[in-house]
Simulated assay, not measured.
Amino acid sequence: MTSTLEAIHVSNSALPVIDISGLSSSSLTNRQAVAERLRAACIDNGFFYIVSHGVPAALMDDVFAETKRFFDFSAEVKSAVDKSRSFCQRGFEPMRAQTLEEGAPPDLKESFYIGPELSLDDPRVVARRFNHGPNLWPPDMPTFRPVMDAYFSTLLDLSRKLMRGLALALRVDEEYFADYCTNAHATLRLLHYPPQPANAAPGEKGAGAHSDFGGITLLLQDEAGGLQVQGKSANEWIHATPIVGAFVVNLGDMIARWTNDRFRSTVHRVVNSSGRERYSVPFFFSGNPEQKVECLPSCLASGERPKYPPTTVEGHLKEMYRRTYK
């Protein structure tokens, strides 16, 4: 009998590999050529790889090195920066603290949350805006913060570039998402998955089946694999095989909402059947918390009505967190 946690191995063409260097071109024609490839991927299943993205390989290696070093610490050391000590969802989250798939056991992973660094006297922090505040930084790791700060800044720039590409892909002005990308909120999450246990509880896995909350996700994954993307049917799962130097990019629920589901936010999960530790680093780009999110008129067919009521980025994210952190 086939395990419900198995996935099919397919060629990388099932998840397109897109060279995005053209998005930095001074030629609109070159930028539009990349945008058309993005459009096809976003309509198909909202998952794709990007290469020629400009993020230095050395920086990516440093991020993994610091991530592994942190999770190798004892539980006592990690608890010093536990997320319970933060009022803005920052810091360490222990194993099985989140349940992404309703009805399934808690996720078999531990993580560390990093967001934009804001001082306690920042007006947004004083007002206790959702997820705004200072980070918790682990002690005795002098290179951890510089590496993560550099990576966070680099991924913010890359996210803005991709949003300009998505605007062209939606056939709207290239700067349509400029306000959304101003004062943008994002979350860098370091993840450690132990090997899938042989005696796992029914339905237990590294990360339960879910779609991402926000705008776009840029995933840096190691060579262990384990990311599975739902195919055309609910029972079909496809391996997102790691490609060295590439990011896996997927759309979140907010983009699906903005486009009346024309651009897809696809369900995915993690099953670490590699037999070894797995590390991955997703960067969740959520955008300006005050940005209004409502259906793009260009995404409505004649006579079609929006599927979702208008909201804001902050309102949408609050609802998503309520669902997974009951």
Rank of each mutant, 00 (worst) to 15 (best):
residue 5 L to V: 04
residue 9 H to T: 15
residue 11 S to N: 15
residue 14 A to N: 13
residue 15 L to T: 14
residue 16 P to D: 13
residue 18 I to E: 10
residue 19 D to F: 05
residue 20 I to K: 10
residue 24 S to L: 06
residue 24 S to C: 06
residue 25 S to P: 03
residue 30 N to I: 01
residue 33 A to V: 04
residue 37 R to A: 09
residue 39 R to D: 14
residue 39 R to P: 01
residue 41 A to N: 13
residue 44 D to R: 13
residue 52 S to F: 04
residue 52 S to P: 05
residue 52 S to N: 15
residue 54 G to Y: 02
residue 55 V to E: 13
residue 57 A to C: 07
residue 58 A to S: 06
residue 62 D to Y: 01
residue 63 V to I: 12
residue 69 R to D: 12
residue 69 R to Y: 05
residue 70 F to W: 08
residue 75 A to G: 12
residue 76 E to A: 14
residue 76 E to N: 10
residue 82 D to P: 00
residue 83 K to I: 15
residue 83 K to R: 15
residue 83 K to G: 10
residue 85 R to I: 14
residue 87 F to I: 14
residue 90 R to T: 15
residue 92 F to K: 01
residue 97 A to H: 08
residue 98 Q to M: 10
residue 98 Q to T: 14
residue 104 A to I: 00
residue 106 P to D: 03
residue 108 L to W: 14
residue 110 E to P: 00
residue 118 L to K: 02
residue 119 S to Q: 10
residue 119 S to G: 12
residue 122 D to S: 10
residue 123 P to R: 04
residue 127 A to R: 02
residue 128 R to F: 04
residue 131 N to Q: 12
residue 131 N to C: 12
residue 134 P to N: 03
residue 135 N to I: 15
residue 138 P to E: 09
residue 140 D to S: 10
residue 142 P to F: 01
residue 144 F to S: 12
residue 145 R to Q: 14
residue 150 A to M: 00
residue 152 F to K: 07
residue 153 S to A: 13
residue 158 L to M: 10
residue 170 L to N: 07
residue 171 R to Y: 01
residue 172 V to A: 06
residue 172 V to W: 00
residue 174 E to G: 08
residue 177 F to T: 12
residue 177 F to P: 00
residue 178 A to Y: 05
residue 181 C to M: 09
residue 183 N to F: 08
residue 188 L to F: 05
residue 189 R to N: 06
residue 189 R to S: 07
residue 190 L to K: 00
residue 193 Y to N: 03
residue 199 N to V: 13
residue 202 P to D: 08
residue 203 G to N: 11
residue 206 G to S: 11
residue 209 A to L: 00
residue 209 A to I: 06
residue 210 H to G: 06
residue 210 H to W: 06
residue 210 H to T: 02
residue 212 D to K: 03
residue 222 D to A: 04
residue 224 A to F: 06
residue 225 G to V: 06
residue 230 Q to K: 12
residue 233 S to T: 15
residue 233 S to H: 06
residue 233 S to M: 02
residue 234 A to G: 04
residue 234 A to F: 08
residue 235 N to P: 02
residue 237 W to D: 08
residue 237 W to I: 12
residue 238 I to Q: 04
residue 246 A to Q: 03
residue 248 V to A: 07
residue 250 N to F: 06
residue 253 D to M: 04
residue 253 D to R: 08
residue 254 M to H: 06
residue 255 I to L: 07
residue 255 I to Y: 11
residue 256 A to H: 01
residue 266 T to W: 01
residue 266 T to H: 02
residue 266 T to V: 10
residue 267 V to K: 07
residue 268 H to T: 14
residue 269 R to T: 04
residue 270 V to G: 05
residue 272 N to W: 04
residue 274 S to T: 13
residue 277 E to D: 15
residue 279 Y to N: 12
residue 279 Y to A: 02
residue 282 P to W: 09
residue 282 P to R: 09
residue 283 F to W: 06
residue 286 S to Q: 15
residue 286 S to W: 09
residue 288 N to Q: 11
residue 290 E to G: 04
residue 291 Q to N: 11
residue 293 V to C: 02
residue 296 L to C: 01
residue 302 S to N: 13
residue 305 R to D: 07
residue 311 T to V: 05
residue 312 T to K: 08
residue 313 V to K: 09
residue 314 E to R: 07
residue 319 E to M: 12
residue 321 Y to D: 05
